[in-house]
């Protein structure tokens, strides 16, 4: 009975994801219908809008959402706590600090066609997640609670550094930092997709190969280790996978919060804790959710855009609270 319900939910979620992915490119300021796509000539400006702007943007949003959700899912499982995501543990402010520093110092360089701002954000994202990982290893037998608190401390530390930079910088630089903190897909072309794809692919594969371990660790660290899970190795792999994915995404698209915490949690309430189903569902739901949010961000007050990070939080917060109040959580857990 439970199993049939899950299969049905799985089918519904996959259908919605596919629909969102297919429909999103047709929304926007310029009206483009499926017929016009087929009929329009290649020199038509709408062809450029469709193929060179909207399609890569939708793909980028999907990849980013999928990776943010999947790495959030892995962290929540690893620490058996829905609040433990790479973002809540300081990656967002860490990467933002890197970007802010780059802006403030007035640097201008690029590596392999990737902007210096992205490189700088990536490095500091890896650094902040490395600090949290180091803290979990430093103290033997450190609990999830101490780890969460140290993550929050790292988060505040970098957030304060950003404030310092903003305080001493001029209005223009300050605005660039704030805008970057809100995240967005405005200037996406195929090149950004190509940049993040290897990181996201490698990270996703690592996580997908640890489905059994993620299930086992949900039962408790001692039981998991007793059944043969190498906890140190598992933590290292999950941290590496998540930091590759998150680092690449925040460095290109800025900070997009809430997806990594909310999407996997909602999926868990609906699908249950078995990562064999949860992982693929989280991947597709995360992708579809961010595609929908990005579509809203560029259509709601068109021709202006609302930063997508704002949309995810505005949409996610109330929905999240609704789920908790209606007691869906109890039903979801068998």
């Amino acid at each position: 009975m439970i199993k049939r319900n899950k299969k049905r939910m799985l089918l519904i979620l996959l259908t919605v994801s596919a629909a969102a992915l297919l429909a999103a490119p047709f929304f926007g300021v310029e009206k483009i219908t499926p017929e016009t796509v087929i009929q329009m000539a290649s020199e038509d400006v709408r062809a450029d809008i469709f193929w060179q702007i909207r399609i890569p943007r939708v793909i980028a949003a999907f990849c980013a959402g999928a990776a943010l959700a999947l790495s959030g899912m892995a962290f929540q499982a690893l620490f058996r706590n829905p609040l433990a995501t790479p973002f809540t543990l300081g990656v967002s402010s860490g990467s933002a600090f890197g970007a802010a520093l780059y802006i403030q110092l007035g640097l201008s360089f690029s590596i392999l066609g990737i902007t210096g701002q992205s490189v700088s954000a990536f490095i500091s994202a890896m650094m902040s997640i490395g600090i949290v990982y180091g803290l979990t290893r430093l103290k033997k037998g450190s609990t999830t609670a101490t780890m969460l608190i140290s993550g929050v401390a790292v988060n505040f530390f970098f957030a304060s550094l950003i404030l310092v930079i903003q305080y001493i910088s001029d209005f223009d630089n300050s605005f660039r930092v704030i805008r970057w903190l809100m995240g967005g897909f405005e200037i996406v072309g195929y090149s950004s997709v190509v940049t993040i794809l290897p990181f996201i692919t490698v990270g996703s594969i690592i996580i997908m190969l640890h489905i059994n371990e993620l299930n086992l660790i949900m039962t408790g660290e001692d039981l998991a280790a007793g059944k043969g899970v190498d906890l140190k190795r598992l933590k290292l792999y999950i941290f590496v996978a998540a930091s590759l994915m998150i680092g690449s995404i925040v460095s290109i698209f800025g900070v997009i919060g809430f997806v990594g915490m909310m999407v996997p949690h909602i999926c868990r309430l609906i699908i249950g804790y078995n990562h064999r189903y949860l992982a693929p569902v989280t991947l597709f739901s995360g992708g579809a959710f961010l595609v929908i949010c990005d579509t809203l961000s560029r259509t709601l007050i068109a021709p202006a855009e609302i930063p997508v990070g704002v949309i995810t939080s505005l949409l996610g917060g109330p929905f999240f609270i609704y789920l908790l109040i209606t007691g869906f959580s109890e039903k979801g857990q068998h």
Binding site: N215, M218, T219, G220, D222, L223, G226, G272, Y273, N274, Q333, H334
Partner: peptide
Amino acid sequence: GYVPQDAGRSIPF
């Protein structure tokens, strides 16, 4: 095979 103390653990399976 190791059976730890149960002590109020939750196993969501």
